[in-house]
Design a protein around this nucleic acid. Structure first.
Length: 202
DNA sequence: AATATCCCCAACCGCACTGCA
DNA sequence: ATGCAGTGCGGTTGGGGATAT
């Protein structure tokens, strides 16, 4: 059925979660060479990843000025206001929130805000005309989100944990960095990775 | 205690756009 | 002019932890 490509140039592109080692390789390469031209960068760095994957990983996670975790109430309010104005223009919204990425804002909106909006709708408005969270994505979104704004700013900041900014951007690895056969013990430890980063001058 | 369900979010996909040869 | 490679964006998903039964 599947003729295996038997291509001498096997590309074997990796997918799925990034490992610590891959992260360090990418960080180190960009530290030495800068970003850009992601496809060739991926090749030059020796990563079995697509350029897109490298770019995404860098922009959303590894970049030094990226902020992750606990959205502050101010940020939440800003997100709601901007979303009311722009709709699902996540990257546009993200430009107003330093350190936040479009992906994180998008996730935040869908998991925390949209859920509450829908919930509130069904609770109060069994027959409401469904303005819902669907914004008309044409230009200004008129007045669709006023209800949600007032709704949220009151007390819906339910389980808000105080902001904990991780000083370095190296943390939060999934612990099992997803080798298919999970052999936790023969994986890299931090010291190996740090020395590896330092050794890799170029 | 075991299992089903929910929920989150990192990373994927397809498509649109841009610039270049 | 047109095809192509690179990039950016938004929607979507799947794996796994958290929570419920």
């Amino acid at each position: 059925m599947d003729k295996k490509p038997s291509n001498s140039q096997d590309v074997e592109v990796r997918k799925g979660p990034w490992t610590m080692e891959e992260d360090l390789i990418l960080i180190n390469y960009i530290a030495n060479h800068g970003e850009g031209v992601w496809n060739s960068l991926a090749r030059a760095a020796g990563l079995k990843r697509t350029g897109k994957s490298c770019r995404l990983r860098w922009l959303n996670y590894l970049r030094p000025d990226v902020r992750r975790g606990n959205i502050t109430p101010d940020e939440q309010l800003l997100i709601m206001e901007l979303h009311a104005k722009y709709g699902n223009r996540w990257s546009k919204i993200a430009k107003h929130l330093p350190g936040r990425t479009d992906n994180e804002i998008k996730n935040y909106w869908r998991t925390r805000i949209q859920k509450h909006i829908k919930q509130a709708e069904t609770l109060s408005g069994h027959h409401h005309h469904h303005q819902s969270s669907e914004i008309n994505i044409h230009g200004q979104a008129s007045t669709s989100l006023t209800t949600s704004t007032t709704f949220m700013s009151s007390d819906a900041v339910e389980s808000y944990s105080p902001p904990m900014y991780p000083p370095p951007n190296l943390e939060g690895y999934p612990a099992t960095a997803s080798p298919p056969s999970l052999s936790n013990d023969n994986f890299w430890n931090m010291e190996d990775l740090w020395s590896m980063q330092l050794l890799n001058g170029d």
